[in-house]
């Protein structure tokens, strides 16, 4: 295990989770931490784009269990179809089942209930890919681990967990693993946050940001995670309800990153803001946040 694992999440899409995670990674690597950043937004991973990384390296397939049926042993009893929670197994009377690959989450329930051992134990299919890419910066570097789900897949958690496991292996002797999650509050998000000891929830001063902050804080509270809130694009709208919500959910600290046109420009060009313009007020706020994270983990 890495010495510390922190998560960056937030519920709403587009609040700046990846913006915060990538800039934190750059600053903390420069601060001397050996660091791995895991991009677990498997449906739309783009931390590499924000870091100016042109291509992901060291591809490995993400394999999940898949029931291959031995039609010589199958008696068409229907036990597997009854056990399948995702509707991936269809049965016509007296005929062997049909399995729909993209509905299968790889849970193995069918394997466990089949009385005739007609399902191969080691069947697998590829649902995505993970990558390990060195990120070179002036003055320091870190490792980016990226999980990518194949198009059309219906279940994100198995891919998120597989990419996270690879990140944990890569970060085995590292000081810090930063886990950047996708939007939402589904199973995949809590799976991504499992090992974290501190969660940074990024929100924005909009009604949508408020709504989704409430959802993600329920998750972090339910998981018993220490939580900080970052209000990104601060100044765009009222924040009082965000602060009240944070208080109610036992959030330890609240940080603000002021709204900055320069941040948007840096973002559009794929350059971390803290490199694009270290004196921009938003960059300075990120430096302040990074310093607090450094104190937590160093």
């Amino acid at each position: 295990m890495p010495r510390s694992v922190i998560g960056v999440t937030g519920g709403k899409g587009g609040t700046g989770k990846s913006f915060v995670a990538t800039n934190l990674a750059v600053l903390l690597a420069r601060r001397g931490l050996s660091l791995v950043l895991a991009d677990l937004d498997v449906e739309a991973p783009n931390d590499h784009l924000l870091l100016g990384v042109e291509r992901l390296e060291n591809e490995e397939p993400i394999e999940v269990f898949f029931p291959f049926i031995d039609y010589g042993k199958c008696t068409a009893c229907g036990a597997c179809a009854k056990a399948c929670d995702t509707g991936a197994i269809v049965m016509a009377k007296g005929r062997p089942p049909m399995v729909m690959p993209r509905l299968c989450s790889g849970c193995r329930a069918c394997l466990m209930v089949c009385p005739y051992k007609a399902i191969a134990e080691d069947g697998a299919r590829v649902m995505g890919y993970s990558y390990v890419t060195p990120v070179k910066l002036s003055g320091a570097g870190f490792t980016l681990v990226t999980g990518v789900l194949r198009e059309g897949e219906e279940h994100t958690p198995p891919a998120i967990v597989a990419a996270k496991r690879r990140a944990l292996r890569v970060a085995e002797n590292a000081d810090l693993l930063i886990v950047d999650t996708g939007a939402g509050t589904g199973n995949g998000i809590s799976a991504a946050l499992q090992e974290t000891s501190l969660v940074i929830a990024v929100t924005e001063p909009t009604p949508m940001g408020l709504h989704d902050l409430a959802a993600i804080l329920e998750i972090t509270k339910g998981m018993g995670k220490r939580t900080w809130v970052v209000v990104n694009r601060s100044g765009l709208g009222p924040e009082d309800k965000h602060l009240e919500l944070a208080r109610k959910h036992g959030v330890e600290r609240v940080f603000r990153i002021p709204f900055s046109k320069t941040a948007a420009l840096a973002y559009a060009r794929g350059v971390p803001l803290v490199d694009y313009d270290p004196h921009d007020p938003a960059a300075e706020a990120l430096q302040g946040l990074a310093e607090e994270v450094y104190r937590e983990v160093a």
């Binding site: 929670d85 995702t86 509707g87 991936a88 016509a92 509905l103 219906e154």
Partner: peptide, 19 residues
């Protein structure tokens, strides 16, 4: 059965018709 299913609603509905 697909009406309130978490996922795979269409396939669960199809299965019901087959059954």
């Amino acid at each position: 059965p697909g009406y309130r299913a978490g996922s795979g609603a269409g396939v669960k509905a199809a299965q019901a018709l087959g059954d």
